[in-house]
Nucleic acid binder design. Structure first.
Length: 571
DNA sequence: GCCGTTTTCGGCCCGACTGTTTTCAGTCG
């Protein structure tokens, strides 16, 4: 976990450099390095020991020295110095949409504002509009930005939550090799798109060593509460974690209880009461007798229903479905036969076509669609028509070398603000697969942007709509598209909608997937990977698909290559 | 601060949009 600590510090350095008005490229270098380190697929400590830190792109000699300094001393002098020059709390203001470093400099210099609370007070007092370069509209935009920010804060993205939970889990298991069971519960176990805090359930006859291991771990910043069987800590990652220790015979009940959701549990308790039971984390009570099912499967069976996977426990009708035995058989990671949305070095990805094919084959995939950006997306080095055709040719050539695997020549074509596509139909007809996506003009009104995406859906060459609502979790709201209409038209045209597996997106979200499935919409679970490491994000997409009750038959990339080819021809 | 090179400096994704201006700065993606 040194990766993240260093990544956090580099991010802080970058922000402070920006606020101080230093060379923006220097700040960008720190930010890039932080991003690279944050991806958890590297271990800085290991690389440092081997003297290979500079092999990480974005780490040069200066940053290598800083990483080594931190690993050795636990401190970064450079950051300490920066913190003396400018209040680090100013960084908070960067989180407000509409505020950048220049605005921060102005309000800091003129009003001495250093945090969100002071900013809000100043905005309410209408002091901001008096500052140079800021008018009434900007002041109002800042007010709105503050409201949005409050709603968003303090929830983790799934990959962060899994990584931190894994860290905590392995620490306790290392400390207590005899521990019968330790399991993640809560919203993380349900695969919710963002996670507030982490819940752990442990099974042990003697709870105190488990609680001790938890509360005295090196990552604990603060012990919020600690009793005989329960504890709450604040970690140094700024994430709260709860632990409950139960007797081994009650593990299934405890796990069920603390997995939630609240709505699911309330409904479940209602059912139990109707049947003369009372359920809690301490077993099933009936006529003064307490029974403890050994597994969750048995628990649900005792309540007269089939097992409900955690991802479905949201109080959205799963209990009724489980009682009448019509619960879906949710999609599994192993059902996925290929990824239909990845980028190569031809646009803004980092890998060659060969590397992509190799990585896909290592994951047991039967096919992989290379879908680089189209020409209008300059920022991502979108491909010109000539480049697209050249790439197609190269892909066709590579395919000759495979017997049990296929690269599909695809494109992620821009849906332009007027609803037209970035390439002519003649070119799109050449492609094996076409994803159409929105990457610009997010602020169009509901009618305009809905019409815009619908016209892409209706293009006969478009197979999939990429990240259909355009949201970035915690950073950007979805554009104002009418998803109900989108789902209806997708069902009509047979165009698939993407379930983008990137933990930043998870777009479409679970509820829309559920809604679409009812209408007969097909989906594609894709990673949108720009680097082969991110092909592993597939599991987050599968979680969301499961949460949307999607089964294998709802997902086009569970098809065999031959079936997929048929589907692409027909649609 | 990184990195590649017409190789030890000079560029670093570039254009749209908005608001505050009066010709441009700031923010965003």
């Amino acid at each position: 976990m040194n990766n993240w600590e260093i990544a956090h510090m580099f991010d802080e350095i970058a922000d402070l450099l920006d606020i101080l008005g230093e060379n923006p490229y220097k700040a960008r270098a720190y930010r890039r390095a932080a991003h690279k380190l944050g991806n958890a697929y590297l271990d800085v400590e290991e690389l440092a020991e081997e003297g290979r830190l500079q092999e990480i792109p974005g780490i040069g000699s200066a940053l290598e020295k800083k990483i080594e300094e931190y690993l050795k001393t636990g401190e970064l002098k450079y950051l300490t110095q920066l913190r003396k020059k400018v209040p680090t709390s100013l960084r908070q203001l960067l989180l407000i949409p509409g505020i950048g470093v220049k605005t921060i400099q102005i309000i800091y210099q003129h009003l001495g504002i250093t945090n969100l609370q002071d900013l809000e007070v100043a905005a309410r007092k209408k002091l901001l509009r008096e500052l140079p370069g800021i008018g009434v509209k900007t002041e109002q935009a800042i007010m709105r930005g503050l409201e949005v920010h409050v709603l968003r804060r303090r929830r983790m993205l799934l990959h962060h939550a899994f990584a931190i939970a894994g860290e905590i889990e392995s620490h306790i298991k290392d400390k207590l090799p005899g521990l019968a069971r330790l399991q993640i519960a809560g919203s993380l176990r349900r695969g919710k798109e963002t996670v507030g805090d982490l819940d752990f359930i442990a099974a042990a006859d003697n709870p105190s060593p488990v609680v001790d291991a938890f509360t005295t771990a090196p990552f604990v910043n603060d012990v919020v509460a600690a009793g005989e069987v329960k504890a709450t800590i604040m970690t140094k990652w700024g994430v709260q974690a709860d632990l409950l220790v139960v007797k081994p015979e009650f593990i299934a009940n405890a796990l069920q209880h603390f997995t939630g959701s609240k709505e699911h549990n309330i409904a479940l308790r209602g059912i139990a009461r109707e049947q003369g039971f009372k359920i809690s984390e301490h077993g099933i009570h009936c006529d003064g007798q307490v029974t403890a099912p050994a597994t969750e499967e048995e628990l649900y069976r005792q309540l007269g229903m089939s097992y409900i996977p955690p991802e479905l426990r949201e109080g959205r009708g799963e209990i009724e479905a489980a009682q009448s035995g019509v619960l879906p058989n949710p999609l599994e990671v192993d059902d996925i036969k290929g990824d239909l949305h990845v980028h190569s070095e031809w646009s803004d990805g980092v890998n060659t076509l060969e590397e992509l094919a190799q990585s896909a084959r290592e994951r047991g995939y039967r096919y992989l669609a290379v879908t680089d950006h189209s020409r209008s997306l300059y920022v991502a080095s979108g491909l010109t028509e000539e480049r697209v055709l050249k790439q197609c040719k190269e892909i066709r050539h590579l395919n000759k070398g495979f017997t049990d695997f296929h690269l599909l020549a695809g494109i992620e074509v821009e849906i332009l603000p007027d609803g037209s596509l970035d390439f002519e139909d003649e070119l799109l007809a050449e492609m094996d697969i076409v994803i159409a996506s929105v990457h610009s003009g997010f602020n169009q009104d509901r009618e305009t942007i809905t019409r815009r995406v619908i016209s892409a859906l209706q293009n006969e060459h478009v197979d999939i709509i990429g990240h259909p609502t355009g949201r970035l979790l915690g950073r950007r709201d979805p554009y104002d598209i009418d998803v109900d209409v989108l789902l209806e038209v997708a069902a009509e045209t047979g165009t698939a909608l993407e379930i983008n597996a990137s933990p930043d997106r998870l777009d479409l979200n679970d509820e829309y997937v559920h809604q679409g499935k009812e209408l007969g919409v097909r989906f594609a679970v894709n990673t949108d990977a720009h680097d082969v490491y991110y092909l592993d994000d597939m599991r987050y997409g599968v979680l969301q698909a499961r949460r949307g009750w999607a089964e294998r038959n709802d997902i086009i990339n569970t098809l065999t290559f031959e079936q997929l080819s048929d589907w692409l021809q027909r649609n």
